[in-house]
Design a protein around this nucleic acid. Structure first.
Length: 205
DNA sequence: CCATAGATTGACT
DNA sequence: GTCAATCTATGGA
């Protein structure tokens, strides 16, 4: 045990992320996101959304090709894509697909597992408000544009396998106005930290 | 150049 | 329930 493992097995490697975004997304639900800093922060991912590549997904930042903002979506799988939402919040995405092909999974909500005090200090509030939304999660972890491009396979931030949820619910994505019907949101229906808990699931995996 | 929408949140009626 | 905050990207004049 040398601090590179949480809780016991190895972190997810490049091959996990270098797959179609719609395969990676549901597999991330139940995984641990671990940040090694002054303190170790650990959260359990409970809600994610898939965003596809050029010409494949009108709601995706990559829909119309590469720009200054979305460049990381086209880069190495297993890296972090961070963007600023509504000019003030940060959102975290895990880059998928092979290099050159855009695709990313938005991390929408997670349960605090370790370092909750640190997260509460950053958020200025606690309970569900700690991390039950994409902007809240990024703020709780102290992640922003400086972390755009961070390597999840080798860096201080990583993803570890966790006990798989009993069920994974599928629904349409939250807060978009294009491609509203696509079933690209995946979450653990048993978690109270899921945002927009009232939205009804289309089914379960 | 100007207008507007947006993968959101928090404060307020 | 409504709405403002605040910045990027995009589309039209």
């Amino acid at each position: 045990m040398g601090g590179s493992e949480y809780p016991a097995r190895q972190r997810l490697g490049r091959a996990f992320f270098a797959r179609p975004t719609l395969e990676v997304a549901p597999d991330l639900v139940g995984c641990y996101l671990v940040l090694r800093g002054r303190r170790r922060l650990v959260v359990r991912l409970v809600e994610v959304e898939a965003y596809l590549g050029v010409g494949l997904d009108p709601a995706s930042h990559a829909q119309s090709g590469r720009t200054a903002r979305n460049g990381q979506m086209f880069e190495t799988p297993g890296t972090l894509y961070v963007y600023v939402s509504y000019g003030m919040h940060h959102c975290l995405n895990v880059v998928c697909e092979r290099r050159g092909m855009a695709g990313a999974v938005l991390l929408r909500a997670a349960e605090p597992i370790e370092g909750e005090g640190s997260m509460r200090r950053r958020r200025g509030r606690g309970g569900l408000e700690l991390s039950n939304g994409p902007g809240k999660l990024a703020q709780a972890l102290g992640l922003d544009l400086r972390h755009d491009g961070a390597d999840l396979v080798r860096g201080v931030l990583g993803v570890w396998p966790g006990p798989p949820p009993a069920r994974i619910a599928v629904s349409t994505r939250v807060g978009i106005t294009k491609a509203v019907g696509l079933p690209h949101r995946f979450y653990d229906p048993e978690s109270g930290f899921v945002s927009r808990a009232r939205t009804s699931a289309l089914g379960t995996l």
